[in-house]
Design a protein around this nucleic acid. Structure first.
Length: 748
DNA sequence: CTCAGCTGTTTTTTT
DNA sequence: AACAGCTGAG
């Protein structure tokens, strides 16, 4: 096979040793993906049926890319591979086998929002204090239990866990866990963790099913093995038990998902689970310059828990790393923007060679602003995904509900959207009735008269029922696109958004159209076998990041977590400050600190040619400008590889501020609630101006504000129930005003 | 029932 | 700063 010739010795070993357990320790930049793809291609060339190969990755993107590369090597056969994320592959298996564990095959997958919303209801129903039982905390607790294969039964029987909960004054968590599981079951729904947990249940209780898949998957491969959790590991261990052909690829130094249950012990202990394990180390780095590789090594060597490995490179020495010190986050952005500009000019590089990495998504803002004012194109990877937008989730909820009318979370979302006179009180009634009679919400709603007699509520519910039934019919008889279009139209969502003439309304409307387009694309795609709406929903439930609009010539902005597996010629790591990176939330234990360091290691090793680091002396955090200390990690980089660049000081960032009762505005009455009562004369505003409702204001309007005088609206945004206008005042510069508090007069 | 206004919380990271 | 849930007036 000619493609093997391009590999070095250990790489080639990793490819052709197909039988028996194998662990490939792949250092950063050592060609890990290449080895994995070649290995699969090699297997296929050896006559192994792609149907018998299972390859698990962590992201949809990784799976897609790998599939493309394999297809390039072996052709269309690659399509039949079982390759995907843990979640998508096991969701697929669970669909087939759902009945065995008491679910319907059209079960819904709850995303994190759904899980939280359900927990919120449960906490409320149990009359627990939501200040103590914080949804995030409870969910984290349940999630970690599931990831460690602890059922609610064993949770409540586990003294250690129960004592922990009592210590944190949350003794009812076990109880909530139980109710949560039961409610999901009743809703015919699984959350992300359930997809793994229930697969374990399936294989534990149904040996016939296990047997079937054990025989099917003659070769099992796991990418990013250092990021697997106990639950994932247990599944793959079982699956590969018959043939023992399991190959895991990973790098303990890049394990950065402990917060999500990843267990670095999986990779550290793999040897003891498979006594006749063969281990291959890929240590030659093909990606980065010596300076970058050395700097990365000098950082990671401070960790105590790691496998023995020495990453080295034959590449050139390269430039030293550069460290920028900025006065503020705003200046940090400007420094980076001008550095990118310079590098581009000096070396004639495209935007796509550059990448800015940060610890938290919120840091992107300052960078964005600077890049925008320097006219540098950029794109943000991650953040709020397309599928998390409200308008998208609303339509999907309708579709979900019509497919699985037991879906409680979808029900709550759509029952009164668009408004049809079924408010919170009515919803409560429905929930109570369902609980009292042991019925699902849908069963209650579709027999409204029986439960609520004749009245306004029953009429409204009957209308709702008729509509949903027509959707069910449409879904059964039409393809996904036609069904979804009908739902969007008849449900009134389209009209609702279309009638919203604000800028955001337009965007939402377009997003909805885009969703419909993507359903159409799904239907039209010849590779889609099952064109039903069910099948589309299944795909979509596990989409997270929208890698739809990938501008090929833009600077990439993303969190370090998102960057794993990627590489860029020039990388900027920003915000390397104590409490931010390492994050203050991680500093409670030593292991957490080590994970932060691995994160830093991951960030450094993304760079091929040049690496820039930066920290700010003060930064807006938590709404306030706070002083910052440079991160302890910076000292771990030997000065042999690092240059400190002193920079000029810039101006402080400006911020908007909130006008409310606490910040009285001259000329206004104390009471802030004056919406609709505002009187221009009374407030001595010149007669040329008339007060306007916030929604009548538009970007570009010339306005007057009592305190700041004249200005021009540069931007209008919605923030929760607040509407805010950025106004450039002639005398005061740019201010952000909350329109419900600070009425602006529009010039007529 | 509905909405604007108000209050309190939050920031890690993602399938 | 940004967001989301809650409350009370209409």
């Amino acid at each position: 096979m000619s493609f093997l010739e391009s590999l070095n010795e250990p790489q080639r070993e990793a490819v052709i040793n197909t039988d028996g357990p194998l662990m490939i320790i792949a250092g950063a930049g050592s060609g890990k993906t290449r080895v994995l793809t070649y290995r699969i291609a090699y297997l296929i060339n050896q006559g192994v049926d792609p149907f018998n190969i299972l390859a698990l990755t962590f992201t949809n993107k990784a799976a897609r890319e790998m599939r493309e590369r394999i297809e390039y090597l072996v052709g269309g056969e690659a399509r039949n591979l079982w390759m995907g994320t843990f979640h998508s592959i096991f969701a697929r298996i669970l669909r087939y086998e759902a009945n065995k564990i008491g679910f319907d095959s059209n079960f819904t997958i709850y995303d994190t929002d759904d899980s939280k919303s359900l927990l919120r209801s449960i906490i409320k129903e149990k009359r627990l204090d939501d200040k103590i039982y914080k949804v995030n905390g409870v969910l984290a607790r349940i999630s970690s239990a599931k990831n460690n294969l602890i059922s609610w039964q064993s949770y409540s029987a586990n003294t250690e866990l129960v004592l922990e909960d009592e210590a944190s004054r949350r003794p009812k968590i076990a109880d909530i866990y139980k109710t949560y599981v039961q409610r999901c079951f009743k809703a015919n729904a699984m959350d992300f963790d359930d997809l793994l947990f229930n697969t374990n249940v399936l294989f534990r209780d149904h040996l016939d099913a296990l047997n079937k898949y054990q025989h099917k998957f003659k070769y099992v491969m796991i990418d990013e093995f250092q990021d697997t959790n106990i639950s994932q590991y247990a599944i793959t261990r079982k699956l590969s038990n018959l043939h023992q052909n399991i190959a895991v690829v990973g790098d303990d130094a890049q394990s950065i998902y402990a917060f999500r249950g990843a267990n670095i012990q999986n990779i550290l202990n793999f040897e003891s689970d498979y006594p006749d394990l063969r281990t291959i180390r890929l240590e030659q780095n093909y990606r980065s310059t010596q300076n970058i590789v050395n700097a990365a090594n000098s950082v990671i060597k401070n960790n105590t828990k790691q496998l023995k490995k020495k990453v080295w490179t034959h590449n050139i020495l390269g430039d030293k790393l550069e460290l920028f010190k900025a006065v503020s986050d705003g200046e940090e952005g400007r420094l980076i923007a001008s550095s990118i500009f310079q590098e581009k000019m000096n070396h004639g590089l495209p935007n796509s060679d550059f990448c800015v990495l940060y610890r938290t998504n919120s840091q992107s803002r300052a960078i964005e602003e600077a890049l925008r004012s320097n006219n540098i194109k950029y794109k943000i990877i991650g953040g709020l995904s397309f599928y998390q937008r409200k308008e998208i989730k609303d339509l999907l909820a309708y579709l979900r509900f019509a497919v699985n009318p037991q879906d409680e979370e979808a029900f709550k979302r759509i029952i009164n959207y668009p408004k049809r006179g079924i408010g919170n009180t009515s919803v409560e009634k429905i929930i109570v009735a369902a609980a009292d009679h042991g019925l699902t919400l849908w069963e209650v709603v579709s027999q409204a008269q029986r439960f609520f007699g004749n009245g306004r509520l029953t009429t409204a519910l009957e209308g709702f029922t008729v509509m949903i039934k027509s959707f069910m019919l449409a879904i059964k008889n039409k393809d996904a696109y036609k069904a979804a279009s009908q739902v969007a139209k008849s449900s009134g969502i389209i009209k609702e958004l279309y009638d919203d003439r604000t800028v955001e309304g337009r965007v939402r409307y377009e997003n909805l159209q885009e969703l419909l387009n993507s359903i159409k694309a799904f239907v039209d795609d010849p590779e889609t076998e099952d064109k039903s709406l069910e099948s589309f929903l299944q795909e979509v439930a596990l989409y997270t990041t929208s890698d739809a609009d990938t501008d090929p010539d833009a600077v990439t902005l993303m969190t370090i977590h998102m960057s794993k597996g990627l590489e860029f010629s020039h990388v900027y790591i920003v915000g390397i400050e104590e409490d931010l990176f390492p994050s203050q939330l991680m500093l409670s234990s030593r292991e957490d600190l080590e994970e932060e360091r691995r994160l830093f290691y991951v960030a450094i090793t993304r760079a091929k040619k040049k690496l820039f680091l930066s920290y700010a002396l003060q930064r807006y955090r938590f709404g306030q400008l706070k002083p910052c200390e440079p991160s302890r990690f910076l000292e771990e980089i030997s000065h042999d590889y690092l240059n400190t660049v002193n920079t000029v000081t810039g101006s402080r960032p400006s911020s908007g501020f909130r006008l409310n009762k606490k910040t009285p505005v001259s000329g206004l009455k104390k009471k802030s609630n004056f919406a609709g009562k505002f009187n221009a004369k009374k407030h001595q505003v010149s007669e040329n101006f008339t007060p306007n409702k916030p929604e009548e204001l538009e970007q570009g309007h010339r306005v007057e504000h009592i305190k700041f005088g004249f200005g021009t609206i540069t931007q209008i945004d919605n923030h929760g129930s607040d509407k805010r206008a950025k106004v450039n005042f002639d005398n005061f510069g740019e201010k952000t005003l909350i329109l419900s508090f600070a009425k602006l007069m529009i010039h007529k």
